[in-house]
Design a protein around this nucleic acid. Sequence first.
DNA 1: CTGAAAGCGCTTACAG
DNA 2: CTGAAAGCGCTTACAG
Lengths: 353, 353
Amino acid sequence: MNTPGIKDVAKKANVSIGTVDRVVHNRGQVSEKTKQRVLEVIEELNYVPNTIASSLSSQKIYRIGILLPTPVDINNYWHYPVEGIKRALREINTFNTELIESFYDINDPDDFNKKKEALISENPDGVIAAPVYAKELKAFLSVLNNKSIKYALIDSDLEDSKRSFFTGQNTYQSGRVAAQLLHYCLPANPKPILVCRIYSSIQGTPTIHQRENGFIEFFKAVNPSQRIYIESIEYQDEEVIPTLLQPTLENYEKYSAIFVPNSKSHLVVKNLPVSSLNKPLLIGYDLIEQNKVYLKDGKIDFLLSQRPISQGFKAVNAILKVLVEKKELNLVDDIPIDIITKENLSAYEHLNL
Amino acid sequence: MNTPGIKDVAKKANVSIGTVDRVVHNRGQVSEKTKQRVLEVIEELNYVPNTIASSLSSQKIYRIGILLPTPVDINNYWHYPVEGIKRALREINTFNTELIESFYDINDPDDFNKKKEALISENPDGVIAAPVYAKELKAFLSVLNNKSIKYALIDSDLEDSKRSFFTGQNTYQSGRVAAQLLHYCLPANPKPILVCRIYSSIQGTPTIHQRENGFIEFFKAVNPSQRIYIESIEYQDEEVIPTLLQPTLENYEKYSAIFVPNSKSHLVVKNLPVSSLNKPLLIGYDLIEQNKVYLKDGKIDFLLSQRPISQGFKAVNAILKVLVEKKELNLVDDIPIDIITKENLSAYEHLNL
DNA sequence: CTGAAAGCGCTTACAG
DNA sequence: CTGAAAGCGCTTACAG
């Protein structure tokens, strides 16, 4: 007998396959002693249900809800995880799936709360979310816990949640990588480095903080004499960013390099005075369209990427695995900190995992 | 009617499902006019066979042969694609698969020829190979063509072959990336750069050549005054490498940087004089164990990686897709040129796609 | 609490 | 050349 099937278990335990199925999926209506006997045989035979037969038979449609910021366009970071999610769903022909989109305005916590209610009312089997509004999300997750709805987190983790899966990047470490690159590139006695934080006042800035910490700690350890200045450009309305940035960037010649700890480095390029020489090195995050254009132009030197497409893709696969195999998972997938330059951008641009 | 099944096609074409199946899989025994009628209905209904039902029903075991250099140990590049292949096979629970390993001594073309015969005699359904011995491999591939056995290529391409899939890195471009990194790191008037080619005289060196070309052309375009010296260490027996390297590395202080266009950069570290200061920057390829150790130590500055685990993984998925869906594929997957430093090594070390 | 039977969408002999 | 039937390993009512 090759790999044992439900029939083998049934025969050996002296029950019908219906009963075996009941204990395998824990849907009750089995006497305790029968259950124990079946469990023993399963153990003994090392029986593993054939998920493909199972899915063929049940004809179940797995409904995956996503609770993420609106993927505005290709210049918006959140466009990319959604792309990965859709791609994963498209490539899956093993199961029937259905996507429930619940997108919220990233600058509006009220909208988040509205959309989480909307999603709940759709009764998804599994959910993919990102902790943009951590506190509000936690409330949502405990609702999911109560309903035994499985969920995966992307981008940032909530370790005290019961997520089946998390994938994202070590933000502190990515700051160190940025610092290390600049340390390699800068001459022996460099001018100061500018850390330019451009962020909306509505969301918190834990990611920016952690990247910054990594950046600063690297220099503290490796080259303590390096001066690092921090400028915070806090905006409520994106339109005023140029005005807010101007006083800082006017003096760009004072700096040997500028580090932008989020996806906004294109805004620095856009608002730098037009003179061409002696520009500071510029290092930022994320392969959003506008950043890629400037990288190709040589106006941005390095971009660190966190494989957002891959994050979405992996989250779908993980949540589906949990749903199909009906077993718990508590997996963390650490995304590499990809260093992208003009010369290696090409292959990163194509969709890949 | 949701997605149409073979029954829907049969009914509409006034034939039995057996007949539909015959035309879908082209196994003849159908009159031309019946065939045409069925084909029309398939077109009309947009019928796509349900591969999972198909695989459940047929109980077919897909036999995948691999014809690759022996994966000696974790200090050997070829260890990693094989790891990816095995991992992919392990993760697949949708189909039954069987791996046929046919490993050859990378320094022995005769052994290659022996092992390719051995593999043929196993009658695999699909094959994964790498063009280490391009000429000899081509002969093998035409045998596969005759037998209608599908194959995927990894590492380097043979564009004129009928491979269903190729994945690998743009070697020329990776040389440019190495050059760009050094260009960023070196001071205004640097000392010369040493390109250190360490290679076995038995295999060809097309990969090394292309990386070198990319490297040199980058500097020609961006900084023509940069002097670049090339040293060729051609060995027949690995044991003599230290002796061959010594005269070159004795004078390491003459160089601002050393570029090793293959996975041998650890040998440079090992044979560098013990003095500690003023070491040239060192940039190499591949996250084999010994290189990773030196990267962590700060003795290697940059490693370029070509995701060998991922290459193996993807090749399995591609070849299986071709076999299961029984349709031709001619896909090229361009592997990103990952830049690895001490600070971002960690997440790359873990298995990921 | 338990079992027997039909069915998921295909493939595979077998009969004609 | 074509069709009817059994079966792949499960799940799902239904009956008892």
